[in-house]
Design a protein around this nucleic acid. Sequence first.
DNA 1: AAGCTAATGTCAGTCACTGACAGTTGACAA
DNA 2: TTGTCAACTGTCAGTGACTGACATTAGCTT
Lengths: 227, 227
Amino acid sequence: MTERQATIGSTTGLRELKKQRTRDALLRVALELFTTQGYEHTTVDEIADAVEVSQRTFFRYFASKEEVAFAVQEMVESRFVAELLARPPEEGPFAAMRNAVLGAWNTIGEAIEAVVPVELHMRTYRMIESTPALLAAHLRRSTDLEERIAGIVADREDLDLDTDPRPRVAVAAFTGVMRVAGRLWGQGEDASMESIRTLTELYLDHLGPALAAEWRTPARTPGAHTG
Amino acid sequence: MTERQATIGSTTGLRELKKQRTRDALLRVALELFTTQGYEHTTVDEIADAVEVSQRTFFRYFASKEEVAFAVQEMVESRFVAELLARPPEEGPFAAMRNAVLGAWNTIGEAIEAVVPVELHMRTYRMIESTPALLAAHLRRSTDLEERIAGIVADREDLDLDTDPRPRVAVAAFTGVMRVAGRLWGQGEDASMESIRTLTELYLDHLGPALAAEWRTPARTPGAHTG
DNA sequence: AAGCTAATGTCAGTCACTGACAGTTGACAA
DNA sequence: TTGTCAACTGTCAGTGACTGACATTAGCTT
């Protein structure tokens, strides 16, 4: 056990390169098959066969058939979380979240394109929303992410998530807007990263003013409004 | 194919009675096993064996293992929808929803108890929230129900669901409150129907004022507030 | 080149779920 | 009562997702 690099993947060996290739191939083929034949009408064997690996190998890369469908989402989300953690503490929670998404969109484009065409990702997005099993998974993942973001926001503002409802409320509003923007992007024609960025910005700007008010002060009693 | 009664189940024959018994037994046993051993550690065979029917028969009563877990929820929800449809049109959307739940809680108690002990239903509720696969299903079901309610509300108020966001917003707020009440009930000690009714009422009364304002008037432009 | 080990393949097995077909049993009429 | 029909149920075989165990292959290291 010699020295290892801590950064994401790749110790630059041939091994890691092949692994990357296999994973990418599985992902691309899976999404392609899902979006053309439908998720339920695509078997894991089909995917594995197309990439010429065993089914067992597929499950070594992805814990489940479901997980492949969300692989790109996962990339985007973790990028967002990283950006959020990096925002300067002076920023209010809403500004931080807003800048984190926009920052994420700036850099994630190439990362996605390196793995799958953005257009394929958009088709995948549509498929997720129209496949009950995947929609369920999507909703669960969303609440998980919300909880994670709420925790980060609470940390930033030094609030207690258990007693102060404001982090969760703000995050819920924020992710709600994000979901609307995402859905609109999926329904639209423009598959570019530009368009999703623009949409996000537009929608978030509608929400901002309502949340800008007094933070870092004790919560009001229930029923009192801050807007 | 002779004359049939259109009402729920039971043509009072021995046949229907046996069917009811089998279904109830499967449901009760399933929930009991789920809540004691955990959902994933319970196989359909176990359930079927305990009731002394074949696995195939289980699947004739319930489309999936998942469906059993939500059988009681299903009862409550359809009861709520029925009550909502029966509310007089003079009531505003919020009042109608509120009265529908409270009305539903008044009558659903016995219906539940006739099938499973309320206490078992409460344990089931907790289990659903703590089992990822079931939580996902729960969220999806919730959004389905929300959509259904939004449609009813839009109808009542003669609004277009596609262009007017208010029905969905109101329903989202309403179901959000309901979810909080439900979760609290699940976490609490008191497994009675009384307590869920009281909780519901308490929480809804906090929300009411904010939604009481001018309905049946054209929607404002985005950004304008009504509170 | 030899040895270590990560990556992969193979195989057997579990579990959810389904279609097909056969046996059983209430319901209803003669 | 008895016979017939239709509804229930059981059995069986098969598919597909997923897992553990073990053998095999192929980079990496010295």
